[in-house]
Computed example of a mutant assay.
Amino acid sequence: MLSLALLVAPVALTSCVTAKRYDDLQARQQTEAQARTAAEAQTRQAKADLQKANDALAELRLDQKRLINDSTQTGNALRRTRVLYTQLTDSYDKLLKNSDRALADRNNDYGKLAKDLATREAELGALDVSLQKSKAELATREAKLTELTQALADKDKAVNDLKARVSKALLSFNSSDLQVKLKDGKVYVSLSEQLLFKSGSTKVDPKGQEALKKLATVLQEQKDVNVVVEGHTDNVPMRPTGGIQDNWDLSALRATDIARLLTSAGVEPSRITASGRSQYVPVAANDTPQNKAINRRTEIILTPKLDELFQILDGNSGAKNGK
């Protein structure tokens, strides 16, 4: 009996322990199930809340898109405002970081800019004054150029008229003995030795005197013409005779005698210049008798006075008219 009791006692004890554990396990499972149920409920609620939030966000985005689409100008203004806001924020941050230094530097910059601006304005003022002066000078030069051009045209016309008058007055003389031509704005009257002088003589022959008197008649009417008489010889040396030593003397004395004749015929002496050029300004090679005869000549060079032109160049063109 005792042995049976000892065997039954452990079995009964084991059964009690197992039932308790089972109850505890079952209770724990219920607790976990409740917790899981609660967590699932919370998850569903969180998902529902999230869905509502997403729906609300989508609605807000849709509203925002509508507002943007319906009000482009407002959107542009908003963007500009944001840009300005960003710029102002950046400027404000920079000023906060180094306000004193930035202000001092800015003031210095403003001072430099103001000084540069004043300098530039002064330079601009001076440049404007210079420009106005240049314009005035240009206008004066243009007026002077116009006046000078007209004076040159008048001078050319006067020279051509003078040539025509001289040519007409001397038309009766042989062209081989007397030629009238224009050169360098002057009228050249070239007279051969045959027309004016005998060989070695310094006195003008009667036929030559007739030509000079006709020329003097024209020159009396042309009082603004200067007269240069140039005597020329060939390269044959002059034999000393009387007061003539060489070709220099011969050319100079011939020019002087012609000058006297023009003066006697009424041309003012102050307008006449006599010069001897000897053999040193030939118009042909002294290699044949014909060419030597061509070189033995007297040239009377008629030059209109250029006083008016010089006055224009000197800026005193009004002096002649008493201005």
Rank of each mutant, 00 (worst) to 15 (best):
P269N: 14
L96I: 05
Q150L: 15
D234T: 00
T140C: 02
D287T: 07
Q45M: 11
K65A: 13
S270V: 13
V159W: 04
A255K: 01
A139L: 15
T31D: 06
E299M: 02
A293P: 00
P282N: 03
N76Q: 09
L25E: 15
R141Q: 13
D287E: 05
E221W: 11
N316A: 12
A169W: 01
E230M: 06
V159T: 14
V283H: 01
L178T: 01
S199C: 04
S172T: 02
N160D: 13
Q220S: 07
V218Q: 03
S275L: 13
A153M: 14
G315E: 05
K155M: 09
L117E: 12
S270W: 13
R120C: 05
Y280S: 14
A265R: 03
A114L: 14
Q45V: 10
S71H: 15
A136D: 09
D90E: 15
C16D: 08
S99T: 09
N295Q: 01
N295K: 00
N98Y: 00
R165F: 07
T43Q: 15
A19R: 09
P289E: 13
L215A: 01
N69R: 14
T86P: 01
T217W: 02
D24A: 14
N76D: 09
K144H: 14
G276V: 09
W248D: 15
V228W: 09
T31G: 04
I272S: 01
R120Y: 07
A39W: 15
D100I: 11
R297M: 00
N76W: 10
V283L: 08
K52F: 09
D257A: 10
Y22W: 12
M238C: 05
I300H: 03
A53G: 07
Q132I: 07
L212N: 02
R106I: 08
L313G: 06
P304D: 05
L215H: 03
L2V: 13
L2F: 12
S192Q: 00
K163S: 04
A169G: 03
D63C: 10
N98R: 08
R254Y: 04
R239E: 15
L261C: 03
L2I: 13
L131N: 05
R44I: 06
D177Q: 01
S71P: 03
G185L: 04
L78S: 12
K181P: 00
E32G: 00
A265L: 03
R141M: 12
D105F: 09
A122E: 14
N286T: 02
A122P: 01
D70Q: 15
L196F: 01
Q245T: 12
T74Q: 08
K135R: 12
L127Q: 06
Q245I: 10
N235K: 03
L170Y: 01
